[in-house]
């Protein structure tokens, strides 16, 4: 396998978020439909539809996940969070019927991550959401693995397009493994190679010169 000295901070597993992971920061930037259950004085300028000084109680607005998580409390209700459309009954039925036909990248792109994060908020649908997320992953995993292990030197963009961020990472890992195996079989694994970082850097510089 290509020795890569840079490995980014991995995203958290399950309901946990990794504080320094770039992926988790982008995941927690996804927006959720929320309803305020108490007024937020002096923050009216954040809500563009109304021209008031305060955000009144009962306003429906979209908030990023990190803010919803920060403001949400079980005891003192300041906020209630609805699951986004893609986790509600309608889509759950679709995913239950055949998870393979759905484009999770369009729905997500952090479908699994978001699904797990939703469990932080009390909702009667939580159990079903968790079940759906898990079953969707199981249903799609076989296909993802099969594709990543067998597409050698082929254009994979069509295969990758409908995959969620987590599945993409798995797909890449599978491809790297496949490539490393092929190199070993061809007896080229002992060959010293130019660092990927250096090669990519030079390519970019060349592009800038031509532009």
């Amino acid at each position: 396998m290509e020795t890569q000295s840079y490995t980014p901070v991995p995203p958290g597993v399950g309901m946990e978020e990794n504080f320094l992971s770039l992926d988790d920061i982008l995941l927690s930037h996804e927006r959720l439909p929320c309803r305020t259950e108490s007024a937020f004085p002096r923050l009216g300028f954040l809500e563009k539809s109304a021209d008031t000084r305060d955000i009144p109680e009962g306003t429906k607005m979209e908030m990023p996940l990190w803010l919803a998580k920060g403001l949400y409390e079980r005891k003192r209700r300041t906020l209630s969070v609805d699951p986004p459309k893609t986790y509600r009954q309608g889509w759950r039925t679709v995913l239950g019927a055949d998870p393979n036909v759905v484009d999770l990248h369009k729905m997500g792109p952090y479908f699994y991550g978001m699904g797990s994060q939703l469990l932080h908020f009390d909702s009667p649908e939580n159990a079903e959401i968790a079940q759906t997320v898990l079953q969707t992953f199981i249903g799609r995993f076989r296909r993802t693995m099969d594709a990543s292990q067998n597409a050698l030197d082929a254009d994979t963009s069509a295969l990758v397009a409908p995959l969620d961020a987590l599945e993409r990472a798995l797909f890449r890992a599978g491809q790297a493994g496949l490539a490393a195996y092929q190199r070993w079989e061809g007896g080229a694994s002992g060959r010293i190679e130019a660092s990927g970082l250096v090669v990519n850097y030079r390519k970019r510089k060349l592009g800038e010169l031509q532009a």
Binding site: P41, L43, W66
Partner: peptide, 11 residues
């Protein structure tokens, strides 16, 4: 009643 706003900014 300012507390929610303070918390909001703190987040």
């Amino acid at each position: 009643e300012l507390i929610p706003t303070i918390k909001f900014r703190h987040c």
